[in-house]
Amino acid sequence: MGNRVLLADDDQLLASLLNFRLKKGGYQVHHSSNGKEVKEYLQNEMPDIIVSDIMMPYCSGIELIDYVRNELKSKTPIIIISSAGNEQNVLTAFELGANDFITKPVSPTELLVRIAREINK
């Protein structure tokens, strides 16, 4: 069994594409399209790595980082993917505990490399 990846993205097309690529890369992928689903999933199960978009319904990616780090007290690697790659977002994400930040457009191959690096740390 491969590592479990939680993919949180409300963009169905991109999520599907990344899901496909990650599965093809040997990962076990769980896709959630909004923050509420993500939290529900995390309460029951903790993946090996979280790949999340920032802008999602119910709960943003920044809130998700805060939830994981401060409420769940988890050190699970978190990679943020966002088209809003402004400095403020990036800094906030890293301050709250994100492990990596990827700006859209994203290269699926690059994402795989980054995920593998975070998991293997």
């Binding site: 097309l13 859209k104 290269s107």
Partner: peptide, 15 residues
């Protein structure tokens, strides 16, 4: 439409 949407989100060889 799908291809145009994905064009915005993808880079590299996938694009």
């Amino acid at each position: 439409e799908v291809l145009l949407d994905l064009r915005k989100d993808l880079s590299g060889n996938s694009q």
